[in-house]
Design a protein around this nucleic acid. Sequence first.
DNA 1: AGGACGATTAACT
DNA 2: GTTAATCGTCCTC
Length: 204
Amino acid sequence: MIVGRDRLSGPSLEVAPLLLGAVLVSTVDGAEVAVRLTEVEAYNGLDDPASHAYRGETPRTAVMFGPAGYLYCYFTYGMHWCANVVCEADGTASAVLLRAGEVVRGVDAAMARRPAARMPRDLARGPARLASCLALDRAANGLDLCDPASPVRLESLGSSPADLVRTGPRVGITVATERPWRFWLDGEATVSAFRVGRRNRVAT
DNA sequence: AGGACGATTAACT
DNA sequence: GTTAATCGTCCTC
């Protein structure tokens, strides 16, 4: 079952917990790899200083301002890609960063893409690792997750028990750190470690 | 045209 | 715990 766009069209804070337990399937580059999401983060637009969309629409963030159900991929630290599910209505920027998950199909293909992973639980434990084992990069930006013919699709939107959902501050950011907009499933081994954002990189 | 910095990771000590 | 790697994006001249 593919996920309907209307189910993703709400605010990121409502969509984020729904995505926990959902399965993201990639058939990019031929191999099929599927990840069951265990950790996500909500990002809003103009009212969220930590969001890429905070300062308005740019070529990079254009997908975030479009309709729900599309993939927003961005390049960071000069080497990594990360993936988001866009939510909210067309014209309103909002997205959910996919931070971690469990590879439930295509473990071999995922291992081939992630030679540094020593154990299966590390394959998609972290946003850039997750994007890497699903082969998500510039070419995947803007793909429709609600189209059955798309190379990246969202299956079985999570029906995770509410009492397993935990929340806390988002990882790696330096502003709006007080907002508890990170969501994860309690007890999952694939949830990434919390880390505060780095500041003053150039300081001596 | 120049520069700061990042929704990170892997490999160190 | 610390740090190098590495470059697109955006802000400030």
